[in-house]
Simulated scan of single mutants.
Amino acid sequence: MSAGSKTPKVGGPRSAARLAAVQALYQLDMSDEPKAKMVVEEYVNHRLGQEIEGDQYVAADANLFSDVVLGAWERREEIDGTLTSCLSSDWPLDRLEKLIHAIFRAGGYELVARPDVPTAVIINEYVDVAHGFYERTEASFVNGVLDRFAKAVRT
């Protein structure tokens, strides 16, 4: 979309919440002093559904956004432990790009803590997020790892 365009971003409020959650988790991971509640408040009050650099973003589901960010951040050690077992031995956790890691944490949190959301929906949503930043190879990687993660945590 070109700068100055007023066309809303594609996707519904829940998709927008997931995208924003990945961005917030990335921000927390890059911060020297991460404070998840402050980041959530910043996004809810100043970013979700706002016009940023000429683009109007879809209003995100603030409750889902907050749940995913705070839950994934609080449970990041647990999620990373499961994630480690889903990666191949030649691809350790510290080799992941920070953004891919944020996608895995958000998706992993939903797979662990949101049994009300079907597995296929969670995986598809986070593969879509990956497509927004990466080429097909990385999105396929996200799909495969989240599928293994789901098999490890859901019956």
Rank of each mutant, 00 (worst) to 15 (best):
M1A: 15
M1P: 02
S2W: 12
G4S: 10
G4L: 13
S5H: 05
S5G: 10
K6S: 15
T7E: 10
K9S: 15
K9P: 00
K9V: 14
G11V: 08
G11E: 07
G12F: 03
G12L: 05
G12E: 10
R14I: 09
A17W: 12
A20F: 10
A21V: 04
Q23F: 01
A24N: 02
Q27L: 04
Q27C: 01
D29P: 00
M30I: 01
M30E: 13
E33H: 08
K35L: 09
K35G: 05
K37S: 15
M38Q: 11
E41S: 14
E41D: 15
E41Q: 12
Y43V: 07
Y43K: 03
V44Q: 14
V44Y: 03
V44F: 02
H46R: 08
R47M: 07
G49T: 02
Q50F: 15
Q50Y: 12
E51Q: 11
E51I: 14
I52H: 11
E53M: 14
G54A: 15
D55N: 08
D55M: 14
Q56P: 14
Y57C: 05
V58I: 05
A60M: 11
A60Q: 12
D61Y: 11
D61H: 10
N63Q: 12
N63T: 11
N63R: 09
L64W: 09
L64G: 03
F65S: 02
F65C: 06
V68H: 05
A72E: 08
W73M: 06
W73I: 11
W73N: 02
W73T: 10
E74T: 04
R75V: 00
R76Y: 05
R76T: 03
E78N: 05
E78T: 07
G81W: 08
G81A: 12
L83I: 06
L83E: 06
T84I: 06
S89E: 03
D90S: 03
D90H: 02
W91V: 15
R95K: 11
L96C: 07
L96W: 01
I103N: 00
I103C: 04
I103S: 01
R105Y: 03
R105F: 01
A106V: 08
G108R: 10
G108E: 10
Y109D: 04
E110Q: 13
L111Y: 07
V112L: 14
A113Y: 11
A113P: 00
D116N: 07
V117L: 13
P118L: 15
T119E: 13
T119A: 08
I122C: 04
I123R: 00
N124C: 09
V127P: 04
D128N: 11
V129C: 06
A130C: 02
H131C: 05
H131I: 01
F133W: 11
E135P: 00
E135L: 02
R136A: 09
R136W: 03
V142A: 13
N143T: 10
G144V: 15
L146N: 06
L146C: 13
L146F: 13
D147R: 06
D147W: 10
R148A: 15
F149G: 05
A150Y: 07
K151Y: 07
A152T: 12
